[in-house]
Write a protein that binds this DNA or RNA. Sequence first.
DNA 1: CACAAAAATGGTAGCGCTACCAAGGGTTAT
DNA 2: ATAACCCTTGGTAGCGCTACCATTTTTGTG
Lengths: 357, 357
Amino acid sequence: MATRARRGSGRPTLADVASRAGVGTITVSRALRDPERVSSELRERIAVAIDALGYVLNPNARALASARADVIGVLIPSLTNNVFAEVLRGIHDGLGDSALQIQFGNTHYCVDEEERLLRVFLGQRPAALIVSGIDQLPATRRLLETAGCPVVQIMETGPNPIDLMVGFSHFDGGRQATEHLLQVGCRRIGFLGARMDPRSQRRLAGYRSALHSAGTVEELLITTTPSPSSVSMGAYLFRQALSKSPDLDGVVCNNDDLALGVLFECNRQGISVPQRVCIVGYNDLEMMAVAYPSLTSVRTPRYEVGRQAIAMIRAALSGERPELAVVDLGFELKVRESTTRRQPKERIAGLSAPALQ
Amino acid sequence: MATRARRGSGRPTLADVASRAGVGTITVSRALRDPERVSSELRERIAVAIDALGYVLNPNARALASARADVIGVLIPSLTNNVFAEVLRGIHDGLGDSALQIQFGNTHYCVDEEERLLRVFLGQRPAALIVSGIDQLPATRRLLETAGCPVVQIMETGPNPIDLMVGFSHFDGGRQATEHLLQVGCRRIGFLGARMDPRSQRRLAGYRSALHSAGTVEELLITTTPSPSSVSMGAYLFRQALSKSPDLDGVVCNNDDLALGVLFECNRQGISVPQRVCIVGYNDLEMMAVAYPSLTSVRTPRYEVGRQAIAMIRAALSGERPELAVVDLGFELKVRESTTRRQPKERIAGLSAPALQ
DNA sequence: CACAAAAATGGTAGCGCTACCAAGGGTTAT
DNA sequence: ATAACCCTTGGTAGCGCTACCATTTTTGTG
């Protein structure tokens, strides 16, 4: 007899709903996945049964049967970095009412960890994958190419996308920040960088390129560390830079935390900003506009990157194959007090990068 | 004939591993879950077969068969709030090499959203649940009580835990911050608060309690907003507070973003800190120690909260039932320049809350 | 050395869903 | 009227794993 205790969870199943509604299980399954294909009458009866039983679909059973989970794997390098927290927020908001879930992994800026996590994710046959940056290991790249699902590389644009791509150019950002300092009259422009992940490296390359065009590259002016970025690291790097080149009159910071640290250190040492030293940050966190003096920064659309990545994934999952596989969301130099010297006429026009190039 | 194309993923299954190793499927399953129970010889043969085939276990099939997923559901109210980003980091680091995965949901400080997400999570029969705070809706609480898995309430301690609890007292933190300002001689102490979620409310209650003991509560000194917290909001609330009470000589801030905004606004208006106004923040983010002047703040162990929550879950999952279901990790008032007036002898001792009470 | 107890291994029947096929009834074209 | 197509609905056989036994082998004990 089948009276033995059920092995399962004891919760109502699709079959329970079906028998209560007086229909076949497959009809309930269809009503859930594609209501259009079930007559409105049955749809109604099924809805009532689901409600009465408090039925919740078992995602594991669905994933097993369809060999496909409604999970998007997201690999980002850091959680404490505000920038990625905002990307994640954009991703979550982009999901809206879809049934997709986020499974996310922290690579700690380590490519081996990235590959390990990717293998774990692939084990679940995710609906899509989001990875940060364009510098995957060759083996990781191969795994992604054969993943059999949409893959989005975020935060950067570059040649040879694995599949889809949303981001902006860090090289151009670093270059434009540096050109701005040149325009406001700085002649001894330093670069401060922490962590120095590939995106930081490209910002530094942009800095070099700008100074190269101006004919004044000098390695001594570059101060970096592999250590994580922080406000105190900004202060520390600035002290280092000053001791190497006391005539420093501008600094391009790898990110806003460093820039804030530089500002605090200037306050502490009585160095006037922007009169003696101009400061440019990167990302334009909310605090930059409120700081005193307010801080110039390169505004990056990180929240939008997250939203756009999900939008592209949802489009791809519903069969649309966009001609635009690479989306450059651009950036915008926000000029503020930290780089505004005496003559306010020296305003620069046309600094915004194009949106959705 | 069974020559029809396989419906599944096309990847090797446990049965493939078993036949290659010349053992039963269940033995492979055991070798994976509980290696101790399989002889070392078979274990070795199985390991070789797994390696040769590149086998990866299908977590969906496991979850379906065992009616239990290796997933911990985490509900937190915000992603942009640095504090919760660090809790998440602690949670991730706490997982270490365990097979557990994190599935996380952003409640946006909304109790209805919390309940909705909880229902989604429960559909997967998670191994454990982590929720923020102690102010769940009655229905949510009932769902959690009958979840059939460990449940940890984090970030706060209080009476009647649902199951486990890790946090600290926000009331005491707010109270101690306020008492500190009283001790350094402030007489017109304001409170600035944004968002005003339940934890903020309790910090405010602590502020009230301290001033009540000193006999000087005054509602006019309290300035709050339901809007999200930000640095610019700190500057804005401070301007508001000043216009209501121009004789303000100290502010207790609901969090560090607000405190930083206050500092910038003081700089902008030429209000000297700490001579004319003392500032206390809450959480002690990294920047507080570097700011100029450096900012006093209540240090909260948010990373540790995440780690401890996972430690308790792992203990519970391996059958240990701790006598200590509620862990108070305490906090510590970090006194810095923003509240250090002329006489440095006025140092306060014994301000640290106990760790692991 | 007999016998019980424990340890190691395997067979099989699900877990709850969906892919695949088939069938019934209605509509339109011929 | 017949054929050719919808559209709607259902039966059934898995998806890849583990729970629950059953069986065999090893070990311990008087």
